[in-house]
Design a protein around this nucleic acid. Sequence first.
DNA 1: TGTCCGATTGGT
DNA 2: CCAATCGGACAG
Length: 202
Amino acid sequence: MNQKLSREFYLSKDTIQIARSLLGKLIVVLDENGQRVSGMIVETEAYLGEGDRAAHSYGGRRTPRNEIMYGPAGHVYVFFVYGMYNQFNVVTGPADHPHAILIRGVEPVEGIEIMRERRGPMKDRNLTSGPGKLCIALGIDRRLNGEDLLDDRVWLENNREFAGDEIAVGKRIGIDYAGEDAGKALRFWVADNQYVSQNRER
DNA sequence: TGTCCGATTGGT
DNA sequence: CCAATCGGACAG
């Protein structure tokens, strides 16, 4: 049942389809004692490579930071923004096809006490309801950049499925600089789930 | 080397 | 609404 997603999962569909099907999957990370800390993905955004003005790989930009986007699917792309937050992405598509999916919200499943300690005093609904927040709660930072999701430091598992009107769609957050690409419907979330990021727009 | 700014968050 | 906070991208 709860098995690790295969390489095939990250390759067999296009990035938009994968972004939708990631909803309901589990992100599992092991803490310093080898304990599972996990959350169910409830919000994703697709970044579509060289033609997407919002993507780090727009126009073929290839730097030490985003190099992993150009590698094989099923690897982790973690980058640091705003001087304080990490962002967790899943690389998709064949090599030299620099697509990625940003995970923007997860619902805590295992290790909630560990997440509370890492995040400090706050309501549970603020634990993992945002891309920076979930990295803190799950213990994800740039040391995991480039990690293979088929190895044993961090991975995804099957958990449950969402379909039809359980999935909401809208524009991506925080990329207003992307011109006409800013309005595209590339953000997907579980309708009515309280761990979707508390966006200030839409 | 210098400057500009970000795929965010939490507090005012 | 705005400050925090610093690494990356790019110009010179």
